[in-house]
Write a protein that binds this DNA or RNA. Structure first.
Lengths: 221, 221
DNA sequence: TTGACAACATACCCGGTAGTATGTTCATCT
DNA sequence: AGATGAACATACTACCGGGTATGTTGTCAA
């Protein structure tokens, strides 16, 4: 039920990005990743598309709106990947393990969007925006906080049944997320890299995170 | 010897910040933390000091130079804290544990400067600056990379004697650092907080990181 | 055929910010 | 006392980038 509520919020804004917007979104996500929100310019996004500002401002009211759509798109992809795992019933530790795997793989595969999510959360924490943008960012960070709660609730369950051992739940969740998200900061695709290589990286990251939480069992996909 | 080489590089630029610069540095570090490099303005730093641009541009040639000094100051503080632990001879695992503790505590205590270090590394990775700034940033990231190597070499030793268990050394080091640095992103000082509270947080973070690396022993200060 | 509208491109405005050029004050040295 | 320069403040310029106003082109419905 928590899950369906989140799924609702995921859809109740603009229509899902059609073909035209999707192309803009990709370009914007890459620009935001490469320069950061404030350093990235709309003209640069346009150049990447081989077009001009006009195209972007025809679809988005402002730079902040464009960024918000990148953010939301990134989170939508996360929910779509993790929710199925979250909803299937099995041992909490196994579920957490799988969630961590698909989440981390998602960080690598959709890195530009996830970087925007990261920066968006930071922007909201700093709180340096106009009131209206602040509200939009607030909704989006709520959206991301509830995503985080999916993991947090699993951590709690696992701690209760003794599969995990940590002190403070919130801190554990925070540190775990930073660890799982860490490829955002040091991973960049190698030339001849295939799915197997990525899965090995994901495996190491997830192993680190789950061990960090006090997990003793073995860590499979 | 690696250590002394690093200490050298730490001193061979401008004279260490005197009183006047130190005040500017603190203000700048806080501004960069709250807004990020490109969104922070020199005028804002000046307002925080209760003065004007003139003061800042009298001591620094450019915004990039000011940022570089914040970066370097942050790293200097790190070396000063961690090097003594690194140089004392004791069991690698114990040494790593202590290094992790003092490092993480440093992240919390000098957060504004460490955020600048973090953003500086990211700016260098993105590579979006002028050639000369790029060189300056390059030296600084080298400085920070050698700091990272202090830990990396310890990880390697610990793995050899079986105290730690992980697959890829570089990845392990990266994920460990992100975990240890994670307070930069979720910690903010509580009103009535004292040293003991901070140490508890540090303890949890370090425990997570060392367990993540496969450490089985107990983790003391 | 034509009117209307979507999907852009072009040209422009304007606020903010990095950087500069020029005062002004005060201390120190001779 | 007068000169000199450090340590700022003030006033200004130049430019970049977000946003807008207006043109242009193709498509589709009536």
């Amino acid at each position: 039920m928590a899950a369906s509520a989140q799924a609702d919020l995921a859809q109740n804004l603009e229509p899902p990005a059609d073909g035209a917007r999707r192309e803009i979104l990709n370009a914007a996500a890459n620009c935001f990743m490469e320069r950061g929100y404030s350093a990235a310019s709309i003209d640069e996004v346009a150049r990447r598309l081989g077009s001009t500002k006009g195209r972007i401002y025809h679809h988005y009211a402002s730079k902040a709106d464009l960024f918000a759509d990148v953010f939301k798109t990134g989170m939508d992809m996360n929910y779509q990947t993790v929710l199925p795992v979250y909803e299937c019933q099995s041992d909490p530790a196994v579920k957490l393990c799988r969630m961590a795997h698909v989440h981390t793989r998602q960080m690598i595969k959709t890195k530009p969007f996830q970087r925007a999510v990261w920066e968006g959360v930071e922007m909201h924490l700093r709180g340096s925006t106009t009131p209206e943008q602040r509200e939009t960012l607030g909704e989006l960070t709520d959206y991301r906080d509830r995503y985080s709660d999916l993991f947090k609730s699993m951590l709690d369950l696992c701690k209760q049944d003794g599969a995990l051992a940590f002190d403070n739940l919130s801190i554990a969740n925070q540190v775990m997320f930073v660890a799982l998200n860490s490829p955002l900061f040091w991973y960049s695709p190698r030339p001849g890299e295939d799915q197997t290589d990525i899965d090995k990286i994901v495996g190491q990251v997830v192993t680190f995170a789950l061990r960090g939480l006090g997990y003793q069992g073995d860590i499979s996909s």
